[in-house]
């Protein structure tokens, strides 16, 4: 897995020849320019967040064409209450969806990843490529029969169906996360030693591999939780506002012909809160999943 570790070389034994240095003035100007650019982009990236927060605290009468970028004249939680009434039930349902998805997918991924990282059977690369392709397909290409299949299998509509499909289509990315993790971080010797001691594959996996898999699990759990939480495509095809996740409810709230922008934006913030909290506190692992998504190990 590509991580953002910095590779530092030990200091050279022989003093390096004096480097050509830029004059101190260009250095200062360059650095100032660099920070100005960085700050400018920071503000641009945060601008939609500003709008979301500010607008969500305005009351209905406060949202005119004039002063729409200003702070609210009177901070009001009226729109938050309205948004929560519209989104509350689906907010709870989305936790019921995303948590099982995260746990089941990572367990499946750990098992697959372990086997595929150690077992070089003939055609293993082809099998792995076929697995990976599953995470890139446009899901429209399976969606039409998928609806019939899940109902034929007798899986209850709404959240249970979505748990099932997220687990199935999450197998590729979770397998990849764990395969790369095991291939790079778990030494071959550890596994070999267990085998010499007569441990079978399952026992090796349970007692040697699983205990050192925590970082892999954190990455996979965060990734799957975020994907399930943010998903809209499966949700719109396989559920509705009454039994679906929060993205569907938010789209219903915000998608009206003349939407209540204050309530919509409060709703967008409510919808984003769980994934943002995860991102802020566990960002390092979130990035781990992002990197795995580019396949390169």
């Amino acid at each position: 897995m590509t991580t953002t570790t910095t590779r530092r070389t030990p200091p050279p034994a022989v003093a390096a020849p004096p480097r050509k240095r830029r004059g101190p003035t260009t250095g200062v100007i360059g650095r100032t320019f660099r920070y100005c650019l960085l700050l400018l982009f920071l503000l641009i990236v945060l601008m939609p967040a500003y709008v979301l927060v500010v607008t969500s605290f305005k009351s209905g009468s406060d949202i005119g064409v004039n002063g729409q970028w200003n702070l609210p004249e009177q901070w009001s939680t009226e729109s938050w209450a309205k948004a929560w009434t519209a989104l509350g039930p689906s907010f709870v349902r989305t936790f019921q969806l995303a948590i099982p998805v995260a746990l089941i997918s990572s367990l499946l991924g750990a098992a697959n990843g372990f086997v595929l990282s150690r077992w070089r059977f003939p055609g293993a690369d082809v099998v792995f490529t076929l697995i990976l392709f599953g995470m890139f397909i446009p899901y429209q290409a399976v969606m039409i029969p998928l609806r019939d299949v899940v109902s034929t299998l007798g899986i209850a509509p709404g959240i249970p169906t979505l748990i099932f499909v997220h687990c199935v289509y999450g197998i590729p990315i979770c397998t990849l996360i764990f395969r790369n993790y095991y291939a790079t971080t778990v030494p071959v010797e550890m596994v070999e030693a267990a085998w010499v001691d007569g441990a079978g594959l399952i026992r090796t996996f349970r007692s040697i591999i699983l205990p050192v898999s925590i970082p892999g699990f954190v990455v996979a759990v965060i990734w799957q939780f975020t994907s399930a939480w943010n998903d809209y495509l499966f949700a719109i095809f396989l559920s509705n506002t009454r039994n679906g996740p929060i993205t569907i409810a938010l789209n219903a709230l915000a998608g009206a012909q003349s939407p209540d922008y204050a309530a919509s934006m409060a709703g967008a913030l409510i919808t984003s809160l769980p994934t943002l909290v995860v991102y802020v506190f566990l960002g390092r692992w979130f990035i781990g999943g992002l990197m795995a998504g580019s396949v390169k190990s």
Binding site: T271, T275, L276, V278
Partner: peptide, 14 residues
């Protein structure tokens, strides 16, 4: 990246 397109779509529409 941590926000869904559905949520960011709300503010971008505005």
């Amino acid at each position: 990246m941590a926000v869904s397109f559905v949520a960011s779509g709300v503010v971008w529409r505005w």
